[in-house]
Nucleic acid binder design. Structure first.
Lengths: 145, 145
DNA sequence: TCTTTTGGTTATCAAATGATAAGTAATGGG
DNA sequence: CCCATTACTTATCATTTGATAACCAAAAGA
């Protein structure tokens, strides 16, 4: 097995993934939201409720900057902070109703483009894709190395 | 075949890919080079020789900004511009020797991390991965939809 | 030839992001 | 109870990036 060739293929593949996700998500970010803020909202949408520290760590943003962006997002009424009873230093973040609506709309658009992209594939092929993703996810892109 | 579930899996997968590529490439960008400049160099490295317009289009950077970043890169002696005989408006960009050396070093580091990541896998598993990437590349992440 | 288009440049400005220092309040461990 | 640590905030500054206008020269088309 030629590992070097596999690496080449891997690099080309990740490039394609970045390019395609760019295509799928472009223009879905609503007006007056910065890319960074959108990516934070995306993370909250998937993982809520989350703490500031979690956002900071997972998105690789320093705590001061995370705090700043989150203030802006709450000012825009897109998410809300809740105190957590057992540790009054922490705060749990959730999308607000309008924030949730916004992200639902965004995901709908992305989904529509995704379905368009796979529309011509047979059930067999879709199964193959599901299987391929499962393999890669578990063997190469798993978080714990 | 539940397309909705496949979409969920797809989203989680692309997130993992972004995360892993971040881990693989972090700290490989040499001092005094901005992220944007690094990504341009990466593109040149893979696709050289390229024109300014190609960089602009593929990396989604406006021509003025592409021109600016490229000027900085040539000032840093990391790439070189060549005139193209049959159309004197165009310029072909290539990595300079030191630019090539820099990118080789970066790719070596990334490769080392990649190999570490797959070191415990059997030949069978590696073949499976190769196959999985081939499937996804052709059916989902192909450029022409 | 005249005009339009293409490929690229320069200059300038605004906005987004990153980095750092300093501070508060709550928690937890001795 | 004291001290260190955690979670988060505020303020400030530098850098990076994005966006726009105005420009030049070569090429291509009528």
């Amino acid at each position: 097995m030629d590992k070097e060739a596999l690496f080449q293929q891997f690099v080309a593949f990740t490039t394609s993934v970045h390019e395609v996700t760019f295509e799928l998500t472009k223009d879905v970010k609503p007006e007056d939201i910065t890319p960074l803020q959108y990516s934070i909202l995306e993370y909250i949408a998937v993982s809520q409720p989350v703490t500031l520290s979690q956002i900071s760590e997972c998105k690789h943003i320093s705590m001061p900057n995370t705090s700043r962006e989150l203030r802006k997002l709450t000012e825009k009424q897109l998410c809300e902070k809740f105190e957590v009873p057992d540790d009054r230093r922490k705060q749990l973040i959730r999308l607000s109703e309008s924030g949730q609506a916004m992200m639902n709309k965004a995901f709908d658009q992305i989904g529509a483009r995704f379905f368009e992209r796979i529309q011509d594939l047979s059930t067999e092929e879709l199964k193959g894709i599901h299987h391929a993703i499962t393999i890669l996810q578990s063997k190469v892109f798993d978080e714990n190395k």
